[in-house]
């Protein structure tokens, strides 16, 4: 069976979803990510969904679950790159993904994760601009 590749990026994991996912693929990703977080001791998970044309309640639930599980394992999940039409539809569907952090793109998402690591390590200057 196909699996969505998970890349290691420093202390974070990066997943780029590029296909119209059927439900089994989504479930497999959830499981794979959980074991990779533990395996690499990852502190952050970036899920890039900029290629996704729709997010229905099944994929929405998958994102929610990944965020919840990773939080327990001390990793922050950031969903990045959601398309405007997808965001509008998701809200209308009734899903706000309240437990999931979001960012406009991979770069911003990575900055969010790094900022969290810095603040948890020590007080450090965080110059963004």
């Amino acid at each position: 069976m196909d699996r969505i590749p998970i890349l290691k990026f420093g202390n974070a994991l990066l997943v780029t979803i590029q296909v119209d996912m059927h439900d089994r693929l989504a479930t497999a990703l959830e499981e794979d990510l959980t074991s990779k977080i533990v395996e690499h001791g990852a502190k952050g998970v970036l899920i890039d969904i900029s290629a996704l044309e729709i997010v229905d309640s099944f994929i929405g639930r998958m994102l929610d679950n990944i965020a919840a599980v990773s939080r327990i394992l001390d990793a922050e999940t950031v969903v990045v790159g959601m398309r405007p039409a997808v965001a509008i539809t998701l809200v209308e569907l009734g899903l706000s993904l309240a437990g999931v952090k979001t960012a406009l793109n991979v770069e911003r998402g990575m900055a969010l994760i790094q900022a969290r690591l810095k603040t948890s390590d020590e007080d450090d200057d965080d110059a963004e601009d």
Binding site: V79, V80, M82, P84, V86, A87, I88, L90, V91, E92, S96, L97, T102, A103, L104, N105, R108, G109
Partner: peptide, 12 residues
């Protein structure tokens, strides 16, 4: 609120 929620989903 929907508008606010949709903007948040995109990271704004």
């Amino acid at each position: 609120l929907k508008t606010v929620a949709a903007a948040r989903l995109m990271g704004a």
